Amino acid sequence: MAQNELSLSEAEWRERLSPDAYNVLRQQGTEPRFSGEHVDRTDDGTYRCAGCGTELFDSETKYHSGCGWPSFFAGNETNIERRRDTSHGMNRVEVVCKTCGGHLGHVFQDGPNPTGERYCINSVALDFDSETDE
């Protein structure tokens, strides 16, 4: 599904994405806490990058952390890249889609077992494919 979206111009990204998705995926923005459509989602399915469709998270790894954004204890490491983020005077690990470079959120080391990680991801950066949509 995903093709070489890295070659898209900023104008093409603006046309392709909603203003909120563009802000998060292309400008490393953050949506307001508890505002996203996936925060309380409990359906079985797959979460994909809203920018390019790359598979990122399985619903079996999603949990309620109370942070205000969808949280996962594991991601598809083949399709996710981690980058050091020192913006806003913090030292964090940014999570981006390997296919299109879109900013997804951050990963923290305060999650549940078995990984101990909490991927804190913006809803607007994700599309959801339900297993029951067949």
Rank of each mutant, 00 (worst) to 15 (best):
P70R: 01
S35D: 09
G53S: 00
K62T: 08
G105N: 07
E10M: 09
G116I: 03
H38R: 06
E131F: 10
E134L: 14
R48I: 12
V24P: 01
E81Q: 08
L6V: 14
V95A: 09
L25Q: 06
P70G: 04
P70N: 05
V93M: 01
T115Q: 06
E37A: 13
S123M: 09
H88P: 05
T78N: 00
Q109H: 08
L56T: 11
V124W: 06
G36D: 06
E117S: 03
F34T: 03
T86G: 05
C67P: 10
I121A: 06
R26L: 09
R16W: 15
M1Q: 12
K62G: 02
R118Y: 00
T61A: 04
Q3G: 12
D110G: 10
H103R: 10
W69K: 06
H106A: 02
F34P: 08
D133V: 05
R33F: 02
E37M: 15
L104V: 06
R41S: 12
G89L: 01
V24T: 00
D110V: 14
R82Y: 04
G89C: 11
G116S: 04
P114A: 02
T46F: 03
C52A: 05
G111T: 09
P32L: 02
S9W: 12
A74H: 10
R41W: 15
